[in-house]
């Protein structure tokens, strides 16, 4: 066995030295190479991931805002339309009311005017009747003073009164 080891060049000191070498290299590289680089890569990955997440979040917020904005706009438009419609409706109602009012008022005025007119007419007519009667009688009296007999005078007066009455009735 020892001869085999001798031929293969195996020496326990060298074996131990190489084990030792490996562990020196292992610990040094672990401390100065793997750990710093892996930590660094992890940090960088995290930073990138965080950045991506943030941008995604911002995008989402933006989209949300846009949605809210659109929703608000639609709502506002609807409200505005409602207001306009309401105003229109109200205006129509008011218009109708005003028209009806005006109509009744005009009717009242018209009726009153008619009444006034007829009243005035009647009054004037009565006055005129009275005046005409008086004038006719005066004129007749004047005429009759010379030519017409008393007999005739009486019948003429009756005729005149009848005539005036007929005229009055006709009007």
């Amino acid at each position: 066995m020892s001869e085999l080891f001798q031929n293969l060049g195996i020496k326990w000191q060298l074996l131990a030295a190489q084990v030792f070498n490996f562990f020196i290299l292992f610990f040094v590289l672990k401390k100065f190479l793997y750990k710093p680089i892996l930590k660094f890569l992890k940090e960088r990955r995290e930073a990138i991931e965080e950045g991506l997440k943030k941008s995604e979040l911002a995008e989402e917020k933006f989209r949300e805002m846009r949605e809210i904005q659109a929703r608000e706009l639609t709502k506002t438009r609807k409200v505005a339309q409602e207001i306009v419609e309401e105003a229109k409706k109200r205006a129509e109602v008011t218009q109708k009311e005003i028209l009806a009012d005006a109509k009744t008022q005009s009717e009242t005025i018209f009726l009153k005017a008619e009444r006034d007119i007829s009243q005035l007419k009647n009054q004037r007519l009565a006055e005129a009747e009275k005046e005409i009667g008086r004038l006719a009688i005066e004129g007749l009296e004047y005429m009759l003073k010379e030519k017409i007999s008393d007999e005739k005078k009486g019948s003429l007066q009756e005729d005149a009164i009848a005539h005036i009455k007929a005229i009055k009735n006709a009007s």
Partner: peptide
């Protein structure tokens, strides 16, 4: 009394280079 062979010597050279490279890079 500790034998130093040519392979051990090159091991040290390799180790030195790797350690230097590792330390310098980080």
């Amino acid at each position: 009394g500790f034998p130093i062979t040519n392979t051990l010597l090159l091991s040290w050279v390799v180790m030195g280079i790797l350690i230097t490279l590792g330390a310098v890079s980080t």
